[in-house]
């Protein structure tokens, strides 16, 4: 009889282990020193901003796992979540490395509290499969987020921090796929049935209220000239991309009031919606309830 295990396990073949080789290999040979003239604390915060965006969005997308409208979409959404999780790991690892205080990606992901998270609020809100949204809302968020992040990452490839530049270079291919995937669904849902068109419009309206925050310059981004991308610079470009998709889908750009910040502060300053605390409770529970455990 076949030896079931030996027949299949090719020892030394590691590429199917998630991030077995790809994770570190992505940045091999990149100069990891702190770039000259950069304030350490600023770079840490900037890496957290971009890393937290990816981590929290991945957490939300993974909620669809085993719940997507069709199996092919289950696979696609998991792929996108995995890409973002990979970006998050690289960025949180960079934050930890620059911070140089003995923390690592997991300490940053699992042991920070709500107020220390730096993601934009757009990625934390419930856009489905929970009661806060549905598939159209999820797609609307994915379209806006990936269009914006792709534009930021394209500029970030020229960052004076070689690590950020490398993360961006790796990420733009992934983000272009995410944006394309979302755009295809916007076309299908807007042009499908009356009901799906209604859902698509409602989804876009819901997420549009969180878009201003994406283009608001944070003091850290100003301080990190040459290293960070000023998101205000990509506003026109992203608007053009979104308008192209919307007009192909024969949809109008939603006219909505933006969800207010708190005395000018929002996600980038750790001032979030109520949703983030619940999301983190789930994300962090096991890691926090077993101090000293190794995983």
């Amino acid at each position: 009889m076949d030896n079931a295990y030996e027949a299949l396990a090719d020892e030394g073949e590691e590429k199917h282990w998630a991030f077995g080789t790809g994770f570190t290999a992505a940045l091999t040979g990149v100069d990891r020193a702190l770039p000259a003239g950069v304030e350490r604390a600023d770079l840490v915060v900037y890496c957290l901003m971009l890393g937290d965006d990816a981590l929290i969005h991945a957490q939300r997308l993974a909620e669809w796992c085993s719940r997507a409208p069709e199996l092919e979409e289950d696979v696609a959404l998991a792929n996108i979540a995995l890409d973002l999780l990979g970006q998050a790991r690289l960025l949180l690892s960079r934050a930890a490395e620059v911070e140089d205080a003995g923390r690592d990606e997991d300490a940053l992901a699992y042991l920070r509290d709500e107020r220390e998270f730096r993601n934009v609020r757009l990625v934390e809100i419930d856009c489905g499969p929970g009661p806060g949204g549905d598939f159209a809302t999820t797609i609307a968020r994915l379209l806006v987020f990936s269009s914006w992040r792709l534009a930021v990452f394209q500029r970030l490839t020229a960052s004076a921090d070689p690590v950020l530049a490398a993360v961006a270079a790796k990420g733009i291919k992934e983000l272009a796929y995410h944006r394309d995937h979302a755009a295809q669904w916007v076309l299908r849902l807007a042009g499908g049935t009356d009901y799906s068109r209604e859902r698509m419009i409602a989804g876009l309206t819901q997420v549009w209220a969180y878009t201003d925050e994406l283009f608001t310059t944070h003091p850290v981004e100003t301080a990190l000239g040459g290293v960070a991308v000023d998101p205000a610079d990509v506003r026109a470009e992203v608007a053009e991309v979104l308008d192209t998709v919307l007009s192909a889908a024969e949809l109008d750009r939603p006219e909505v009031t933006q969800v207010a910040a708190l005395a000018g502060r929002a996600g980038r300053d750790g001032v979030h919606t109520q949703a983030l605390g619940h999301l983190l409770a789930e994300l962090q529970h096991v890691a926090r309830s077993m101090p000293g455990a190794v995983w």
Partner: peptide, 10 residues
């Protein structure tokens, strides 16, 4: 959603 490290989550 609760995997206790990012590597295990991935």
């Amino acid at each position: 959603g609760r995997a206790p490290s990012l590597r295990r989550k991935a």
